[in-house]
Amino acid sequence: MRHHAIDVFLRFSAEVTGFKIVELRGTGESGEYLGTLDRIVGPDVVDELLSAYAELQPREEAEREQLLRRQIFGNEKLGPIARNIIKLWYVGIWYQLPRNWRERWGVREADVTFTVSPNAYTEGLLWPAIGANPAGARAPGYGSWALPPEIPQV
């Protein structure tokens, strides 16, 4: 386990998903997702992304957000990976990187679209975000569908 990397990965993930680190760890998937990134794009590229994020840390929120957009999401190499991290957390699926990324930075053998694990599906942030449970999992209790969804504050 890459302890320092996972801390930065969680801070980055919390900022870009709008969920708290406790909630991200609470999915039980943080190690799995960082491992997925390492396996598909390689630890070097992951560290490049995390370092770029760590450099934004001391700034004010508004400024940081602007830099986040420009230097990470707007970066040809790091942007698609950052977007993939958001999707990983929300739906538990790794989406194959865009064609132009693969042409520019090289095709990774493991880079295919797949659900990371059965647990990744049930723990997707999409479900708490809409106040629902994943179909077929995390049963909310008989009759709970008659109650309004509880949407967490993000």
Binding site: V22, R25, G26, G28, G141, Y142
Partner: peptide, 18 residues
């Protein structure tokens, strides 16, 4: 009943945090 299931989710969330 739904409150019990939410307690379950809360308990599991805590247990996955160091």
């Amino acid at each position: 009943v739904p409150k019990m299931f939410r307690l379950r989710n809360g308990a599991m969330q805590l247990m996955r945090n160091p």
